[in-house]
């Protein structure tokens, strides 16, 4: 039981990562691929934050009377990663709008055929 509690976080994170990965490689619609990519990104963030948690600690903001804090360094890394993630997502969505204008569709099988025909 203790073993499961120790590793439950990581296993769920791996499950979410694989769900996101599956959506990215198997979805037909491009927007769904971007959603899957974001799911993947968020699960990776959860992995890092889970590694930084200390049992019995509190948020890394200095308060009187508290000595045990959770590790603030993964938080800094993930803060940057989240913002970079949204920047990438917005550029990806802009590309999808251009693909729609150029090909008339954002379904992968349909514009693959158009690409082969060119």
């Amino acid at each position: 039981m203790n073993f499961i509690l120790d590793y439950y976080n990581y296993w769920i994170v791996v499950f979410l990562m694989m769900t996101g990965f599956y959506i990215v490689i198997s979805a037909n619609n491009l927007i769904k691929k971007i959603v899957g990519l974001n799911v993947f990104q968020t699960s990776v963030f959860m992995l890092y934050i889970s590694m930084g948690k200390v049992n019995g600690g509190t948020a890394p903001i200095l308060v009187d009377g508290v000595t045990l804090y959770s590790n603030p360094l993964p938080h800094v890394l993930i803060l940057t990663a989240i913002v970079v993630g949204v920047a990438t997502t917005s550029v990806g969505l802009a590309l999808i709008i251009r693909i729609k204008r150029a090909y008339g569709t954002v379904e992968e099988n349909e514009f693959e055929k158009q690409d082969d025909a060119i």
Binding site: T42, T58, S70, I78, V86, L93
Partner: peptide
């Protein structure tokens, strides 16, 4: 998991901006 800054950013960016842009 005691990551309050990260939670703030994830809620505003992920549940706010990303969702709005995808709906757009």
């Amino acid at each position: 998991l005691d990551a309050v800054d990260v939670a703030f950013t994830e809620a505003s960016v992920g549940a706010g901006i990303s969702t709005v842009l995808m709906l757009g």
